[in-house]
Design a protein around this nucleic acid. Structure first.
Lengths: 335, 335
DNA sequence: AATTTTTTTGCAACCGGTTGCAAAGTTTTT
DNA sequence: AAAAACTTTGCAACCGGTTGCAAAAAAATT
């Protein structure tokens, strides 16, 4: 069915190598040969087979994209940006939905079998060891949204979660809150752990009482709503720092359900700044994570790794900022 | 770096074919040979290269997944289901983000170059001709969420949009509304056109006045909010049928912003039943589209096509149903 | 035990490209 | 016009598997 190199070579009256070279960037072909080949290729509708090329060059132009959070709208942006950014560079994403795949080990095997050129692990709920498994298998890997360590042994692109936790504590303190709660994302996520640490440490420093610490089971509205019921048992809580906007929205609805009004009776601070955070019904004050920068940088880095595998592990962190809307008391007037 | 067939064959003391056969389902190998090979493979950590296999067998186990709607939360389900459903069958999704890709023609070329075994085009905003282009190129294709025609020439899996439009009109009529509006999705989407047709025809039959027909520019909250401002100019509109839940939520907020309360002053009927539709802040009455059934069926069909390319085009439609929440007047008591 | 049937095995060609190398062809230099 | 330097080209081997075919081995039949 498909037209091959050989047929084009025959029609153009040149060798197979000549045809191959016309379709390879930077190869040496004379203008006359190129013209003949291009004409023949056009006539036959020839396009080189990327599979065959991959076998010969040992490059597939496939980038594995491993995620386990297909429920959260925050990931829509991630997918959109990843795919379009890869496409711009003539690369393709090979998606792996980790929630469905049995073991992480299998995922590594699988992507190795497909000879992906690189892998982006986009999740904060997996340990660093997962990303390292790719590295051990000789596959360039970036742990996006991952936990960074001073003695990095794997590329990490994301944010400083500890610092963001501290930022949340400061945000509460500046607005005059004195007793607050933490309603984090899944407890096993490294992002949750780091934010929690930063939040509690800074709260202590600022004399802010953290009356309650709890965690939602996953990044969903429902999990947030359920966990919030627990927080509401404690009447002294004036504001809640949530590990994710979706969780936060669930928590807000639980609070409203209990007759509280926002921000008068209770304040909420979200995380991520997903599109919905700006909707009138929630008007969420939240800490924005610069997804776009993170993704672009991850793609750039993985491409760099492919070109230069020896590159030493890098940590790239992007700043987050508080987006002021209506779910917290306003800052007191300066002066 | 990677271990090859040849090395395994040498270690096991058998021919390359024997190794190949141990890793090919249904091939003939004796128990003793298989054992020797498996032992050698384990020692060396061998896994067959899928690229090489693809070249030889002309099957890649890659399924192209073309989408152009990465903004809508409804697509999270789509991605999740598609990827996990493909994974169960040992297939991989090769994602194409159409919004970023220049021309549809290029997409066909691209997926052909990667020799995908099949393609699922998951969008209602592209004409049937797009799906047909794959077919012409000899690639099995399913148009999921596509427009179906009596004389089908391409597989379509989805819903009967005309019928759903009619269902919306009946829903309004049953609840005693007499003057309504249609706030559809993008006007170029075939789903919008069909729903609109069914809605208006049935409204006319039921004596329901459609005072206003307009369309959101895309499937977003903002587009819904903007378009709703136009609808609000007409004070006689009692209820609005929206082309998508996200659009509907935007529209609801525009209405509330104008001081209307829901459902007392104005009613809303959404479409899709995304997770957020159930949130307290919206409690959207909406027409549920059975995404899960549609996706599972699409995957099953594309697999069937790969196995039997001669298969004649099929149309698979799934029923939708009204999910009653709080954005419409209740049904009058029976009797 | 000899013959027939069935199963297993290795050989070698093939899938559709790339690429190092040396020969052939051009262009530049002397 | 010959020599030197540079380009272009085709040959042939290779990437890592699969598979039809015939020979070899094993099992079943007589």
């Amino acid at each position: 069915m498909a037209v091959t190199l050989k047929e084009v070579a025959e029609l153009a009256g040149v060798s197979r190598s000549a045809v191959s070279r016309t379709f390879t960037d930077g190869a040496s072909v004379s203008a006359r040969t190129r013209e003949k080949v291009e004409k023949a290729a056009k006539t036959l509708g020839y396009k080189p087979s990327l599979i065959a090329r991959s076998l010969a060059t040992n490059r597939t132009k496939l980038i594995g994209l491993v995620a386990n959070n297909f429920q959260n709208p925050a990931f829509l942006d991630v997918f959109d940006l990843f795919t379009s950014e890869l496409q711009k560079r003539e690369l393709r994403p090979l998606l792996v939905n980790l929630s469905a795949e049995t073991s992480p080990k299998k995922v590594v095997e699988l992507l190795r079998q497909y000879s992906v050129d690189g892998v982006i692990v986009a999740t904060s709920t997996l340990p660093t060891s997962f990303a390292i498994a790719f590295q051990t298998a000789g596959i360039p890997v970036i742990h996006t949204f991952g936990k960074f360590q001073a003695n990095a042994n794997v590329h990490v692109v994301g944010i400083d979660n500890d610092y963001c936790g501290a930022m949340a504590a400061r945000t509460f303190s500046e607005r005059g809150y004195s007793t607050v709660a933490l309603l984090g994302g899944p407890e096993t996520a490294t992002s949750t752990q780091d934010r929690s640490a930063g939040f509690q440490r800074t709260a202590a420093e600022l004399g802010l009482k953290v009356a309650k610490v709890c965690f939602a089971e996953n990044y969903t509205y429902k999990a947030g709503r359920d966990a919030m019921r627990d927080v509401l048992k404690d009447p002294e809580v004036e504001a809640v720092f949530c590990g994710d906007d979706l969780i936060c929205m669930g928590a807000m609805d639980a609070a409203r359900d209990a007759g509280k009004s926002i921000p008068e009776d209770i304040g909420f601070l979200g995380f991520n700044d997903i599109g919905m955070a700006g909707w009138d019904a929630y008007a969420l004050t939240t800490i924005r994570q610069p997804i776009r920068d993170i993704i672009m940088s991850s793609v750039e880095l993985v491409v760099g790794m492919v070109e230069n595998p020896g590159r030493s592990p890098e940590i790239r962190l992007f700043p987050c900022s508080v987006i002021e809307r209506g779910s917290l008391r306003p800052l007191p007037e300066a002066g």
